[in-house]
Design a protein around this nucleic acid. Structure first.
Lengths: 130, 130
DNA sequence: TATTGACCTTCCCATGATGGTAAGGAGTAA
DNA sequence: TTACTCCTTACCATCATGGGAAGGTCAATA
């Protein structure tokens, strides 16, 4: 099948499929006589794997490793688990950061009249040297 | 003062100060005879404002608006509050997304032996067409 | 057969916020 | 004068993705 159909099935746009190929996430596609990329069901499976990994927030660098682990039948599940745990850690840090910001902003917003008057605790906070 | 000192006081690197100037977040700095940027306490105050706004997760686009509201003495606090509330919404969406990913990955990790064996529920999930 | 329209190709540029580096000028102190 | 630190601009990199241009291919239809 051509890149368009592979894109529809995998949920990865043609644009991104080419990009993934260029940075070595996926193997180089075979080509038709006229130069079109051609994909097998196995190729589409890799693309779906990448898509799902992105959905779970893994970076392309991590996904590159995940794909190679997936294709290596003698992998140790420990390696995969460690990647997952590290990624969970990263995300939990991000969540904590965001929650802190939300907390602060909610507090400031609560004290802001939110009317025509210029006085505003939010701006006062921002203008305060940290 | 020169850009280096303004950077130390405000916590914004010289690199970023120049960048902020170039994209119009802060007014163009006055220059010394030899071309060095010079900053007043008021200029540094703007930089601190930007820094604090970044700390609260606002985008540069939003900060541009916040700065202009801050400097507009006849602003309506409603405008500021609405920006804050919209930003809170954005962040809460991001938090929810991250929490969903964490939840899924934690579940998968719990079921992964994490040893020398290749069998791995995490990879099985990733390989599953969504 | 000629044309059309949908698909494919490569190449370059843009995003957003930040960092790095290189090449060169300015300021100051020994 | 040398040496060192600071400043200047300009370009490139990151990360994942999207947009668009210019041109080739394929299949169906007029």
């Amino acid at each position: 099948m051509n890149i368009g159909e592979a894109a529809k099935i995998s949920g990865v746009t043609p644009k991104l499929i080419r990009h993934y190929e260029s940075i070595g996430i996926i193997p180089k596609a075979t080509r038709s006589v006229s130069g079109y990329r051609t994909y097998s069901a196995a190729d589409v499976h890799i693309l779906s794997f990448v898509k799902r990994s992105r959905t779970l927030g893994f970076s392309m660098k991590e996904i590159k490793k995940l794909v190679s682990l997936w294709r290596n039948k003698s992998r140790a599940s420990l390696d995969v688990k460690n990647m997952a745990l590290a990624h969970i850690d990263d995300m939990e840090k991000k969540i904590a950061d965001l929650q802190e910001m939300v907390k602060t902003l909610k507090h400031l917003s609560k004290n802001c009249h939110g009317d025509n008057r210029p006085d505003c605790p939010i701006l006062n906070d921002l203008a305060q040297p940290l």
